[in-house]
Design a protein around this nucleic acid. Structure first.
Lengths: 219, 219
DNA sequence: TTATTTATGTGACAATGTCACGGAACGCGC
DNA sequence: GCGCGTTCCGTGACATTGTCACATAAATAA
C-alpha cells in the first residue's frame, strides 16, 4: 500500500521525513467488525484508509451510540491520533464497517515530523477542519431536524454508500447511527411503510420512493 | 495591545513573519452586543481577544440559537477565519458579550504565513483541536444529558463566569444559549424554585443552593 | 421438533418542544 | 402620580420523541 497518495504535498515534505513516514506506516488488513479504537486510551495513530470503511462514533455511559462520520478509501482518520493535541478529552470509537487495507502511522512519529514540517502540519489542519465540519453538520441535524427527516436522510445516504436501494440493516443498527432508541426507528419506519416510502423485512429496509424521502429529508 | 503573547512559540517564528503579523493585526475595541460575524460570509480573520468576551453560536433558519462556546482574554478565535480551510461550510455567529479590546489578523495574511511556518500551523492545529473538543462536549451534553442537568450546569458556569450567584439574565437568553424554547426554561426554573435551588425575579436568577445544582448537573 | 436467540411490534407513560394565549413588571411620556 | 407600549414571564393543551415493559415472530441451534 502506497501512502504517498494520501498527502497532497508529498513532494514538499523533506525526503528524510518521507522515508520515516513510509517505514513507520504499519500496513494491515482489517475485517468487518474489527474494533480499531475502544474509546478510552485512544491513540492508535493516524489511520490511512486503503480499502476499508470505518465508522467513527461516540458512546454514552448507558451504551447509546451516535455516528459522527464514516471514512472510506483515501480518507485519513485524525481523531485516532487526537492525543497529539493538548486538551482533547473526548473519547471516540472506531469500528470497521467493511474490511480492507489500512495503514497506521504511530502518533509519535507523525507528531515529530509534523512539528517541523509546515506542509504536514497544514495537511493536519485541513483534515481536522473537515472533521470539524462533519461534526457541525451533525449538531445541526440533531438540533434542528425532526426525526423523520433525519431517518429519511440516513436511508438515502446508506443507499448511496451501498449502491443499492435494498439495505441489509436492522432497526437497532439504524438507532445506533442516529443516536435514538430502536422503538423510535420502528415507529417511524412503520409510518414510512404506510406512506409507501419503504418496504420492510426482517433485517432489511428497501427504499421504494426515494423522491418522497428526499422531500422529507428536506433537500 | 501586544499580540506576541498569544503565540506560545513566538520566538520560533521567522522574524520577518513576526513583523508581518504584528503590522497586519488590526486592534480595535468592541462594545457589548457588537456583532463580529454575521453568519454568512464569515471570514473576518483570526481574532485575538484582549479584554472582551465573545459568544460563538450557530443559528437555525427559524432563528433558534445554540452557544458553541465562549472566548475570553487570551483566547484566539479560529472559526472566524475558517475560510482558510477547504470544505468548511458551516456558518457561525459571533457576538461580544462583554466589551473590550481585540486584534484581528486578516485571514489571507495568517494563511500565507501559516503555509510556510510549522510553528504557526501547529499552533492553528492546537486551537482547532481545542474548539473541536468544546463542540464534542456540547454534542454529548445535547445527546445524553437531560434538560435539568444542562440548565443546572449552565447556571453554575454562568455564576462562575460572572463571579456572582445573582445572574442578570432572562429566560429567553438562557433558552438561546441552550438551544431550547423559553417556555421550557421557565418551566424548569419554576421547578428549581420549588426545590429551593434558585430564586427568580424579573430578568434575574439567583442561585440559592449550588450544591444541589452541582448534584443535578451530575458532577 | 423444541429451545434459544435475534428482530420487530405495541401500548402506556415521561420528557421536551410548540403554540396560543394572558398577565405582570418595567420604562417612558405626560 | 397616570396611562401605555414593550418586555418578560406563566400556563394549559397538544405534538414529538424517548423510556419501559412486554408480546410476537422469524431465524438458528440443539
Amino acid at each position: 500500500m502506497d501512502i504517498s497518495g494520501f498527502f497532497p504535498f508529498w513532494d514538499k515534505i523533506d525526503a528524510r521525513d518521507r522515508e520515516t513516514l513510509g517505514s513507520a506506516a504499519n500496513v494491515r488488513h482489517v475485517a468487518e467488525g474489527d474494533v480499531l479504537e475502544p474509546g478510552r486510551d485512544n491513540c492508535t495513530g493516524l489511520i490511512l484508509i486503503g480499502g476499508a470503511r470505518l465508522r467513527v462514533f461516540i458512546l454514552s455511559e448507558e451504551g447509546r451510540e451516535v455516528t459522527l462520520f464514516r471514512l472510506g478509501p483515501g480518507d485519513v482518520c485524525l481523531l485516532s491520533a487526537s492525543c497529539m493535541f493538548q486538551g482533547v478529552s473526548f473519547d471516540i470509537n472506531i469500528i470497521a464497517e467493511k474490511g480492507g487495507e489500512i495503514a497506521i502511522i504511530p502518533t509519535r512519529v507523525y507528531k515529530t515530523i509534523s512539528d517541523r514540517s509546515a506542509p504536514l502540519a497544514n495537511f493536519t489542519n485541513q483534515i481536522m477542519a473537515e472533521r470539524f465540519d462533519s461534526v457541525m453538520w451533525l449538531i445541526e441535524q440533531i438540533l434542528w431536524k425532526s426525526f423523520d427527516a433525519r431517518l429519511a436522510e440516513f436511508l438515502l445516504d446508506e443507499a448511496e454508500l451501498e449502491n443499492s436501494d435494498s439495505l441489509g440493516i436492522t432497526h437497532e443498527q439504524i438507532a445506533y447511527h442516529l443516536g435514538t432508541a430502536r422503538e423510535v426507528v420502528t415507529r417511524m419506519l412503520k409510518y414510512f411503510v404506510g406512506e409507501g416510502y419503504v418496504a420492510l423485512a426482517r433485517g432489511s429496509v428497501t427504499l421504494t420512493d426515494k423522491e418522497a424521502l428526499r422531500k422529507i429529508a428536506g433537500k
